[in-house]
Amino acid sequence: MGLTKMTSSGSVAASWLRPITAGPAPLLTRAGHVGYAARRLGELVQGRPPGITGHQWSSALRDSFDQVVCAADSGRPVFAVQVAPPPAGTAARRAERMTSVVCAAVGLPVLRVESTTLRGADHARRFVEYVIDARSYAAGSGAEGGYAIEFREIVGRLPDGRSGPVNDLGALARAAVVEAYVERRLADPIVRGMHVRWTGGPAEGWSWVEVRPGRCLVERVGLFAQRFSCGVDPGQLAEDLAAVAVGERLRDLDAVEPSLVDRDELRGRLRRLAARRDEFDGGFAFDHLCAD
């Protein structure tokens, strides 16, 4: 199989990506895709593209993804997902950037979720299934598809019996919060949230719930969508993932007590974020959360 070839117009005619044809069987099969767990970038590429230094190449090839989604008919990678804590320190962030550069050069779209709570082993598969479904829906939502609303806005029956957006990744967490409130284990039944999209950078989603009067459990998730779209706004998706993280933390209420944030402190954090609105793609739409 040849490497990337260029047509006379300069477009890419072949891929630097190597089909997955060997190794463990896929963990999921869905809508014409198969998903493999724990694959290194080095297993997915063939040859070093022009413009990539030897150091970038050797560093990136060691990086791994929690899920790699391939076309079921060809085995060729379609996108990869990585769920991890934010890189600790400049060296780790530099290594992450080198991986991003190499993935862009070989044409591998990547979704990277940064969270101190979510983990690839526990959450990557559900996220991949959601993204595949959203992409499939978006592919048929043009004028000929006949869909009048976006995937995230489809209304149906929620886990707690209410009506609402059934394609909200945080729906289970929101239902669990209502249940905990009814059982008088939480001070408020609502998971609140907001999101922004940094210009030229990641989407960032926040979700929180008032666990004790005036004391909140806060989760923040970063979502880097590199050459990737699934028809759901990345900011909204990051906020929904933050709600998922809230639900995970609430499994052990005793453990979250030391990390609760005073409501006034949370409001101050949101105000500081709002003050940077010029750095956001689309501005800041959550001033109402900053008011006293």
Rank of each mutant, 00 (worst) to 15 (best):
M1H: 13
L3A: 05
L3M: 15
L3F: 03
T4V: 06
T4P: 08
S8F: 10
S11Y: 07
W16C: 11
W16R: 07
I20Y: 11
P26Q: 00
G32D: 08
L41H: 01
V45H: 04
T53R: 04
S59P: 08
A60E: 04
G75N: 12
V83H: 15
P85Y: 15
T90N: 08
A91G: 12
A92P: 11
R97Q: 13
M98T: 07
A105Y: 07
L108D: 02
P109Q: 03
L111P: 05
T116M: 15
T117A: 03
R119I: 02
R119W: 01
A124E: 02
E129G: 00
S136N: 08
A139E: 02
S141A: 12
G145H: 13
I149R: 12
R152Q: 07
R157Q: 09
P159Y: 02
G161W: 00
D168S: 09
G170L: 04
A171G: 04
L172P: 08
R174Q: 06
A176K: 11
V178G: 15
E179F: 14
E179V: 15
Y181M: 07
V182C: 14
V182F: 14
E183H: 06
R185G: 08
R185F: 01
L186F: 06
G193C: 05
H195K: 07
W198I: 10
G201P: 13
A203R: 07
W206F: 12
V209T: 08
V209R: 09
V211C: 04
P213N: 09
R215A: 12
E219M: 12
R220P: 00
F224I: 11
Q226C: 05
F228R: 04
F228K: 06
E239S: 08
L250E: 02
D252Y: 05
V256H: 02
E257P: 15
E257Y: 00
E257S: 03
D262K: 03
R267F: 13
R272N: 04
R272D: 03
R272C: 03
A275Q: 14
R277N: 12
F280H: 06
F280E: 06
G282K: 01
A285L: 09
H288E: 11
L289T: 15
C290A: 09
C290M: 10
